[in-house]
Amino acid sequence: MTPALEVRDLRVQIGSAEIVGGVSWAVEPGQTLGIVGESGSGKSMSVLAAAGLIGPPTARVSGQVLLADDDGGGGPRDLLTLSPEALRRVRGRGIGFVFQDPATSLNPVLTVERQLTEGLEEHLGMTRRAASSRAVELLELVGIPDPTRRLRSYPHELSGGMRQRVMIAIALACDPQVLIADEATTALDVTIQAQILDAVRGLQERLGTATVWISHDLAVVGGLADEVAVMYGGQILEQADVLTLYRERAHPYTEGLFAARPRLGSRDDVLATIPGSPPDPRHLPPGCVFYDRCTVRHDERCASERPELRPLTPGHLVRSFYASSRQEQS
């Protein structure tokens, strides 16, 4: 199947720092790719660059970002080669984006209704009345009570969780080919979080929407994603289908992330942590980017030579010289 969105050797450089260093992944229609990693690992920067939301003069972006032709009349379009006007047409209809901070993403001087209907009128050609009716349906979809009244609200009149739900509704409004969600449910309680995840799954089943889900929450990613990419230092350190990664993870960094999860039934007072901090992108180590924090590093080769992302087993990629899959101990 042709991917809905494919990223090839994506690199993002800001000044002398390479924030994203040669990332490649693909997500097919109806599938979900989860991207996990600590803050500063390059997750958000990679998808912002892929969607054309960061570029010159702020950053230098290279590689390919191929979005499938939604009309079926031609091959995929490389978003990095499109003009600003062509990119504007792609956003909304081709790609819906849920940003991490709704307080800074929503326009404070426009009502919720106007922010929801603008894309419907622009991209789908709806009348103002039809767009308003669709806006009510979208607010109901994301679990906002009394949606007709809330359409007249301004962002400052809503709670943080409700603002986040409005952002998700805007991203879903035009039934995009690809939905990119950056920590989309972090500010929501678990009940609303479950409703949002169900809405995303329903959209995927109904329209074949591909989803890229960025999260720190391994439980959310495990319940939603088909494939997971683990990022650190601007690189993918491990990538596999969700069951393989959760049961047979092979990279020490991935193992560290899983060890830090709270576990039901555990009485430990202190969660496990990964010692140290993520590397400064201006001063990445010459070898493995995880070398300084790795607890199982082997020899000088790890310190001086950068490993490539290679297949450990079919479909299971690991960036390590000495990786071997380990079965999860329950």
Rank of each mutant, 00 (worst) to 15 (best):
E6W: 02
L10I: 08
L10A: 07
S16I: 01
A17W: 08
I19Q: 09
V23N: 03
W25I: 04
V27R: 02
G30D: 04
G30E: 10
I35C: 11
I35K: 01
G37V: 07
G52L: 02
V65A: 12
D69H: 13
G74N: 03
G74I: 05
L87P: 12
G96I: 00
F97V: 07
P108T: 06
L110E: 00
E122D: 08
L124K: 10
A131L: 06
E137D: 15
L139G: 08
V142S: 03
I144N: 00
R149V: 13
R149W: 12
P155R: 01
M167C: 14
I170G: 00
P176C: 10
T186S: 15
D189G: 05
Q193P: 01
Q195R: 15
L203H: 11
T211P: 02
A219F: 09
A219W: 04
V230C: 11
E238M: 01
Q239R: 12
E248M: 12
L257M: 04
A259G: 12
G265L: 04
R267L: 15
T273L: 04
P275C: 13
D280I: 14
R282F: 10
D292P: 05
R293M: 06
T295Y: 00
R297Y: 12
D299P: 00
R310H: 10
L312G: 13
H316S: 10
L317E: 10
V318W: 11
R319H: 04
A323I: 05
Q327H: 14
